[in-house]
Amino acid sequence: QKVMSPETYIKHPLQNKWALWFFKNDKSKTWQANLRLISKFDTVEDFWALYNHIQLSSNLMSGCDYSLFKDGIEPMWEDGRNRRGGRWLITLSKQQRRADLDRFWLETLLCLVGEAFDDHSDDVCGAVINVRAKGDKIAIWTTDYENKDAITHIGRVYKERLGVPPKVIIGYQSHADTATKSGSSTKNKFV
């Protein structure tokens, strides 16, 4: 009788359970009504089953978002785990949609589900991609804008994983500053 090794039938568990959300901009509805939970997963295999099944970000209509957050954290500033948090923000030029957008987003997802930031991965709440005509954005959200060690470690690893050249500066902004900004840009807490 053949004995199957466990590797052939046991899925690979992730450290966290994750929830993928989709936002579609419909101006007749409230912001919250436009936000839908797609699915949750907690294994490597189920992550790919979901990823392979949905549209690439570059195919989404302008105004749409994907968000991947740890189970129990809603992808909004108001959630208790986000209220004092902030984000490492990657802004992309229009030309980068073709060259970099899908690659950057997949790399972001792999950083999250693979726990790429070592012990500081605990500070990660999730990640968001905004598809916008004026320029797409990708961000990793963390839970506390005062956790300098965690934020700088996450930023360094993330920038390296994306292959962003050292001379390009990326910024970390608190959600509180983003929510209350008066102009078009938010001041960086860290770079």
Binding site: H12, N52, D118, D119
Partner: peptide
Amino acid sequence: KKKQYDREFLLGFQFISASM
């Protein structure tokens, strides 16, 4: 211990069926 997976390991599973 934290369950960490590097990118090559994760990418190796992209086209393995998860229909179990």
